[in-house]
Design a binder for these strands. Structure first.
Length: 531
RNA sequence: GCGCCCGUAGUUCAGCCAGGUAGAACAGCGGACUCUUAAUCCGCGUGUCGUAGGUUCGAAUCCUACCGGGCGUACCA
């Protein structure tokens, strides 16, 4: 590690700059810099409103990059918490979810107190948590899951909650000036969970008892109730909640989108009131769609993680997340191939670089310092083109053409390349194929096609690409095409639905001679080949 | 109003933090392989670096103002 420490301390790559912020923060923490809890804690948080999305991936991927960088600067162990706000009250019924009527009856209750509309988990909150964990596991992220409900109910937050109660007035003074008049009237950092209805209430708090650890609130019917602030009987309102959690868990680092700048400030002030130092923060920019407008889940613009992963490996998405996190970047379909190829070239460059350059190489951050050895050697752009030209959804056929170019490569020896082949085929199937336009053969072309089918059938079973190519060529010369270029173009347009294509001899061998003849016969019959 | 981000080749962007002859990819154009094709090879970029000032021997890069585009600045999380 000693040979990497100095360059890591000097690296300008943003994860190292962030990691050094954490190191500075620990500066006063004793001779070793080791915090009392024995480790450095990174946190990422998830709202209850929905399913994991590309922003979730972004936050965990980026936080993990900082965590990896930190590990090069310090021997202090690190942990990453994925915290779910599953005790938040359900505000509105999400779209695209079954049993919406059922959910509507439970508005306002903590997510973990609402039946699972999918019927697969203990509660809606548990269901969402499972989705979150499944999502993170899919990428192999290292994290510890924490549930707000469990933290509140188990008493883990109790001490910090009593701390909030003791500083009730100071905290309220911080929040009140930022609120509109209506909300100001009923504001309290504590939101009692109504014992009768089970809902999280925004009720006026009319009395509180610091010694007993209780608050007294007034419900809608005018009745007053005294409840403990501990043990899950109250939940904290958002900004106070965030601050309390930082204190209770000892969070050292948490990044957030720039839409939360105001919250970070206020929660930071509350955190100090509670006697703790707010975590180091990092504000990242939001993602824009193709037209430069903010991506929002409700509008459905932008790109889903699943879409990206359908057409490209996850590492290319990680690359996108690594690059310029402080810049509002456009995230849409067309940028995918470019990121794949940039990723591949960063990996290829890595092997030839010295340590300082490696630390600035995105591949270092994507792979925690150890990028794969395999070089793809074929760009993704070329593969996409190839898939389109070869007119195939069959990996084996595409590999036939790849091997022609890289004779020693096989799906087994080149797994990275093989995965690119798979993605290229998805691209072909979804994007290229639907755009195909097959045209019917005219009288003269039908005659030529018939001639070709006969010539192919007359060939011996093991005929090679060159023999077939020669037959195609000879047939073309026997018919009045003017030049051979027109003959080949006609073949592409009629048989493949595109104006360009592969070398016919090679293609027919890979496609299969029998299948080829059948295809030609169908074209002669005037069948629609687009299926 | 306040705060932040962006404005560099046809397109998408890098370069700006530590000032020193304007870059990449794609698209486009021209040529080669004379058995088409391009998945190959070769060649081709003066673009007011948003505008105007300032600092400097020297500014895409630093400072100021302005213009244009985007977002935040209620509530909720």
């Amino acid at each position: 590690m000693s040979d990497i420490l100095r360059p890591a301390m000097e690296s300008r790559a943003w994860p190292f700059e962030e990691a050094r912020k954490i190191l500075d923060r620990l500066g006063g923490g004793g001779p070793t810099g080791l915090p009392g809890k024995g480790h450095v804690l990174f946190e990422t948080g998830y709202g209850p409103s929905g399913l994991p999305h590309i922003g979730t991936f972004a936050e965990v991927a980026r936080t993990t990059m900082v965590r990896h960088a930190f590990a090069r600067l310090s021997a202090i162990p690190t942990r990453l918490i994925a915290f779910s706000d599953d005790m938040d009250g359900l505000r509105r019924v999400p779209d695209n979810i079954p049993n919406r009527e059922m959910l509507a009856e439970h508005l306002g209750k903590p997510l973990t107190a609402i039946p699972d509309p999918f019927g697969t988990h203990e509660s809606f909150g548990h269901h969402n948590n499972a989705r979150l964990k499944g999502f993170l596991d899919e990428f192999g992220f290292d994290y510890s899951f924490e549930s707000a409900t469990e933290c509140y109910r188990s008493g883990r937050f109790d001490e910090a909650l009593l701390n909030v109660l003791r500083h009730y007035d100071e905290i309220t003074e911080v929040i009140l000036p930022t609120l509109g008049p209506e909300r100001r009237a009923t504001y309290s950092p504590f939101l009692p969970v109504c014992p009768r209805s089970g809902r999280v209430l925004q009720a006026p708090v009319i009395a509180r008892d610091g010694d007993a650890g209780t608050i007294t609130y007034e419900d809608e019917d005018g009745g007053t109730h005294e409840v403990p602030v501990t043990g899950g009987h109250c939940k904290l309102q958002w900004k106070a909640d965030w601050a309390m959690r930082w204190v209770a868990l000892g969070v050292d680092y948490e990044m957030s989108g720039k839409d939360l700048i105001e919250s970070v400030k206020l929660s930071g002030r509350i955190c100090r009131i509670l006697g703790a130092k707010p975590p180091e923060g990092f504000t990242y920019e939001l993602f824009l769609d193709e037209n430069g407008e903010k991506i929002s889940k409700s509008r459905g613009n932008g790109l889903a993680v699943e879409e990206w992963l359908r057409y490209a490996p996850a590492q290319s998405l990680s690359l996108f997340m690594y690059l310029s996190p402080r810049k509002a970047k456009r995230l849409y379909f067309d940028i995918i191939p470019r990121h794949v190829d940039d990723y591949l070239s960063h990996v290829a460059k890595f092997a030839r670089q010295e340590v300082p350059e490696r630390l600035a190489n995105p591949a270092w951050h994507i792979h925690d310092g150890a990028p794969p050895q395999e070089e793809a050697r074929l760009s993704f752009a070329i593969l996409l083109n190839l898939a389109s030209v070869c007119n195939t959804e069959d990996r084996a056929v595409l590999w036939g053409f790849v091997s022609r170019y890289l004779p020693e490569a096989t799906p087994e020896s080149a797994p990275v390349l093989d995965s690119l082949v798979g993605h290229a085929i998805n691209y072909y199937r979804d994007i290229v194929k639907p755009a195909k336009s097959y045209r019917k053969a005219n009288e003269m072309e039908r005659s030529a096609l018939s001639d070709l089918a006969g010539a192919l059938e007359a060939l011996p079973a093991g005929a090679g690409a060159e023999d077939i190519q020669a037959q195609v060529y000879e047939v073309g010369k026997r018919h009045p095409f003017g030049d051979l270029k027109s003959w080949f173009r006609a073949l592409y347009e009629i048989l493949l639905g595109q104006t360009h294509g592969p070398r016919m001899g090679s293609f027919f061998v890979l496609y299969g001679l029998g299948e080829t003849v059948a295809l030609i016969r169908r074209a002669i019959e005037g069948e629609d080949l687009a299926g």
